[in-house]
Amino acid sequence: MATETHDTVAGVCVDAGGSALGMPQLCADWMPNQIFWLLVTLIAIYFVMSRIALPRIGAVLAERSGTITNDIAAAEELKNKAAEAEAAYDQALLDARAEAQKIVNAAKAEMQVALDVELQKADAQIAAKTAESEAAIGEIRAGSVKSVTAVAKDTAKALVVALGGTADAKTITAAVTARMKG
């Protein structure tokens, strides 16, 4: 069972078969070796960390947080600028709208004035034409009444004559006139 290599390793802590006697952790023969190499390793790690790695990582982290802070500040500034620009744009839009409204109102007023003038002119013309027409109608009416009277007198006279009476112009006229009034 025991091999050559195991035999040579064998000491206080290892049996002839190469197995541990008791706990290897408690083997005093091996402790100085572990402690020595542990100290070497720890010192090496400490120098690597404190001289190279940690300052470098710390610097990178600081630089990054600085960059982020700067970027956030720049972004804030740009945002403010954008807000300003937007406000200016809104103002310009409002101004333009007000201007347009003003122009529209002025044009409307102008048109209203012109319209009023034209309407008055047209009204006057219409009134003139109406008066003219009324005069003509009155004339025609008067003429027609006169004609009716004449026709009635003549008819009456002719009727009286035809019935064998004597046509007294005066009497007939008076009668016709009285009837016309009736």
């Binding site: 290599t5 040579t8 390793v9 000491g11 802590c13 290892v14 190469g18 197995s19 541990a20 706990m23 290897p24 952790q25 083997c27 023969d29 091996w30 100085p32 070796n33 572990q34 402690i35 020595f36």
Partner: peptide
């Protein structure tokens, strides 16, 4: 517990500090 045995890397022999 054999996994915890301290062995020299090169050759065989006693484990000195």
């Amino acid at each position: 517990l054999d996994q915890f045995i301290v062995k020299p890397l090169f050759g065989d022999g006693a484990v000195s500090w």
